[in-house]
Nucleic acid binder design. Structure first.
Lengths: 348, 348
DNA sequence: TCCTCGATAGAAAGCGCTTTCTTCCGAGGG
DNA sequence: CCCTCGGAAGAAAGCGCTTTCTATCGAGGA
């Protein structure tokens, strides 16, 4: 029924071992023999049996990329970059064709763990975790344990946009400098003269949320300005929309709103506009991440750019072992303030 | 070193066969025995060897989801929906935990084929192809062949947003009614009084592009209105931005521009605005897909809504066999016109 | 001319699981 | 009281590949 290595071997009049060696290309095979084998493969339309191969070789060509929300371009961009970096470096066994796959955790710790187990089960060659994680100690410990076990089994572990697991030297980590980015953004607003700044934060208990909030507060504290109202919510426009009402209710004299990210900022803008407030005339708005649409917002969004594509590519390379792991196992990815039309001095 | 089924068996004082049966749960095992086995599994922290399991059982728990561009929310939303639908239906063997993975083809036929081969290699349980495909006959034939082979090997094949492969009864297909959607949109514009309508189409040779264009032309033809300038380009904002210049150069008297999708429409709006043209005062703009941000554009984008989430869920269910395949193997997903602020009658 | 060595190719032993075929055991039926 | 029968567990044969260990052959070197 299905064509096996043995069938190919028979047709090429060689042993199965030889066929395997031709296919994996890490053993000297005479050119004429190789030729014959490849022809047989072609004629029989043979496709390697992955499970069998993985079982025998004790490794697979699967690379898992875990993201919090695949429908969010923030992750889409990084995942896409990683996937192409992985697809390109076609080295290693079996033609080096790795199967880079992205798994959507939806931000749920359980699903994250489930996916990690599933990947462990598949003996994945590498795993990339993208985006911030929950800060629940229990979950952190569980994840750390899983990752350690994966690393131990030979799976390369890469963190991208997530702080390194304390006490885990196995994983290479690309850490986004959310704190500095948020600080710069707040400093920009303060520099413009804003003193009453609302903040629509991301979900509580997330590293990304906390770091951005901390950077924001640092700047305020340094300037001796009191912290404005803060509301937490998911990373979507609706959250920004709803939070704005809450923020305004708590402090009607706000002159600026900082959003957890650009998507949220869009919701903030919509809500502001519905109330007849102009941007940045009445209220300045700022986002984070510099997602593609943020430059097309009206007015264009002041935001903090994270080099998502570049980070994704690096994560992919690290996963493939194509790029040297950074010294100390971690490297910081800088955030850059982008001032655009949505922020201006407060109405005098 | 690594814990195997045999280790668990030894610890539970049963045979490997029994452990396997407990884990797969499709054979009578006495409650007390099951208990003992599960405890051993837990104590040893045993994780099933996926490749070995797949090899022996001749099936795997991998479900591949192929998308054209993972960074595009259009695909992200569908993929996310499919993935959660797949994650939820935890029936079948091995706890039924399927590993739903999304693969990014980048719209490249080669990569699409590569991924299909890789999934075939893994003996994937199902494959979902999302989004339009290239209309190149050669590629179409190659894909059809691959899909036939996959289906033959027991892999379920689902098409979502892509026309069914002619003469292929294996695949269930969810077809977006792009043609009708585009026609309605054009009719709307015509109804407002527009007679000079530019069109920024998607990449040539793509089914989605062609169907939308055809619907558009149908409406124009029915109304006896001459077709305006058309420019092709990728599905990104830059394309819309650049195409607008071209469109305006070809016909400076345009009163409306229809874009391939919402993202492109955003680029169109930006370009128009840069030229000092107001929307919809000087030029009306319409998008397609109703991506989340389109309602936050200023003005809000008139567009055609496709139920991406629902379609994704259905695709996931079809892949799991949880949902009955539609009669005739294909089902049409309706498109709904959404009139918002970006379209208005042309200036008098 | 004999022996050694490098380059290839083959034989065969698993890899860790699933599953068919058996075996075993206690409960009823005759 | 013996036999049959059904439920539960074990034995063992692979699943299709990789890889170590061997075998073979022709070319040089002594």
């Amino acid at each position: 029924m299905t064509v096996t290595l043995a069938d190919v071997a028979a047709r090429a009049r060689v042993s199965p071992a030889t066929v395997s060696r031709v296919l994996n290309g890490n053993y000297p095979v005479a050119a004429s023999t190789r030729e014959r084998v490849l022809r047989a493969v072609d004629e029989l339309d043979y496709v390697l049996n992955g499970p069998a191969s993985s079982l025998a070789a004790a490794t697979s060509d699967l690379v898992g990329v875990l993201v919090n929300d695949i429908a969010d371009p923030f992750f889409g961009i990084m995942a896409s970059a990683a996937q192409s970096a992985i697809g390109e470096s076609a080295s290693g066994r079996a033609g080096g064709q790795k199967l880079a796959v992205v798994c959507n955790t939806g931000g749920s710790p359980e699903r994250e763990l489930t996916y990690l187990t599933l990947l462990q089960r598949q003996r994945a060659a590498a795993v990339i975790l993208m985006g911030g994680s929950l800060e629940d100690p229990e979950h952190l410990a569980a994840t750390a344990g899983k990752l350690a076990k994966l690393a131990e089994a030979g799976t390369r572990v890469v963190l991208c946009g997530r702080p390194p697991v304390p006490g885990d030297a196995h994983a290479a980590a690309l850490v986004f400098d959310n704190r500095t980015g948020a600080r710069r953004l707040a400093e920009h607003l303060l520099g413009l003269g804003h003193r009453r700044i609302g903040y629509v934060a991301g979900p509580a208990d997330r590293t990304t949320t906390r770091h951005r909030l901390e950077g924001h507060r640092e700047a305020l504290a340094a300037a001796g300005v009191a912290e404005g109202p803060t509301v937490h919510g998911p990373y979507d426009r609706r959250s920004g929309h709803e939070a704005t009402a809450e923020l305004l209710a708590r402090d009607p004299s706000l002159t600026a709103v900082v959003a957890a990210n650009d998507t949220v900022a869009l919701g903030v803008c919509a809500a502001l506009r519905e109330r007849g407030l102009s941007i940045p005339g009445d209220v300045s708005v700022a986002g984070f991440d510099d997602l593609p649409f943020s430059i097309d917002a009206v007015p264009a969004l002041t935001t903090v750019r994270l080099p998502l594509h570049e980070a994704g590519v690096r994560a992919g390379r690290l996963a493939m072992g194509t790029e040297e792991a950074p010294a100390g196992g971690r490297d910081t990815v800088p955030a850059e303030l982008l001032v655009r039309g949505s922020t201006a001095p407060p109405r005098g």
